[in-house]
Design a protein around this nucleic acid. Structure first.
Lengths: 123, 123, 123, 123
DNA sequence: GTGGTCTAGACCACA
DNA sequence: GTGGTCTAGACCACA
């Protein structure tokens, strides 16, 4: 269900968060459905449970999931979340664009990259 | 000439690298010109010389500058570098776009952000 | 596993890099295997951790290893690297040969040295 | 007469030494001929006179030149020197070859490089 | 425990 | 003065 890239410089817990964010927003994990337990996921990914714990804690803080003592973690309603998520992503995109502009990259080049990225089916 | 943002989560040495990359690629620091000495920059920024040293070492490895013992550090020819730099940046942009696409952001929204970012004069 | 020669004029961190390059290319440290931790190696060699850190950072940049925060450093796949390494070494050899030629050393003398060096079992 | 490569990582004084060694051994500067004065060479190369001074001092120690107070520096007889120089160079070559062997380079590859280097006319 | 960043400060070779 | 190496030691994020 989830994979981790150890060569990626992003910390593991962040990778986990991102994967679940996508799964939840895309609806693969619908509201109300149960998240894999911390322990089972830790075993499955051969990862320290603390790391999963941390990812779940942050996902809960961000409103993606909620946990019920003794029962596990569940996916929340995500209506409002999508907007917020989009805004944060916009900020990220803007930062990259600004950096590119400083390097002398033209608007047209950026537009082209966007088109290629979306037109290309996948990746 | 260079400023550091302590609230930025990026490490200091990376900020220094980025600032100089921009200055060099933009031609503010032309090929052959002398870089501020490790020590003087350290004093100016109130930063430990080791940190500057690290930044310079990495800039040298990346081909932006070269250092001559006892003389100082100097800006290299950057013809080939700009292309390489652009490519790396393209990769960065692509990664962000892919992530956005996964979150369900539309091509049009991305194009719009690009236009705003460039049209907006500055930032 | 690794030894340092303090009489060698090469800096310590370079010696460490070279030792590991050999171990990795020879396959003594296969891809995926864990490197000794920065701290443990520092203790073992009675060297400051910063020095090991520097060696590891450069080995990572060269593609020999990759580091995962909180987990450790691991040996990378080195298929492409060997070729590159060979080429750099060829350049080094060529430089020495050219210098010799300028000093009036004959081709036959060089060939002889090569044969002696390889025929001689070790060293 | 002499050029310096600032991008070369070898220190300037060493470059100067090597250049003169070649000129002297090749006979371009025959025994008894006068070396350029420290000052004039310093001006010509836009280099600190101390650096030339150091190079000359070492060349004198190695027996390539001798200085006469108030008159300047002159090229020595170099009969015996060539042998010594060759031996040092042999050591250098041997070190490179050993390193190559550790990287898994074969005897045949080395022989080939030697042949190419000498057969190729120049460089 | 792991790697990564940073400071303070010493010492060296080189120009 | 210049860059480069190294130590000692603190502190952080991450697993």
């Amino acid at each position: 269900m989830i994979t981790i890239d150890y060569r990626d410089r992003k910390p593991i817990y962040e990778q986990i968060i991102e994967r679940f964010q996508v799964l939840i927003i895309k609806g693969v994990l619908p509201a109300g459905s149960q998240m894999p337990s911390v322990r089972s996921l830790a075993v499955e990914l051969s990862i320290n449970p603390n790391t999963i714990q941390k990812a779940y804690m942050l996902l809960e803080q961000q409103g993606y999931i909620y946990s019920v003592k003794g029962r596990g973690s569940f996916v929340s309603e995500t209506e409002g979340l999508v907007k917020e998520q989009k805004m944060e992503w916009q900020r990220e995109l803007r930062d990259v664009l600004i950096k590119g502009r400083e390097f002398g990259i033209s608007e047209e080049e950026c537009l082209e990259t966007v088109r290629k990225c979306f037109g290309g089916g996948d990746l």
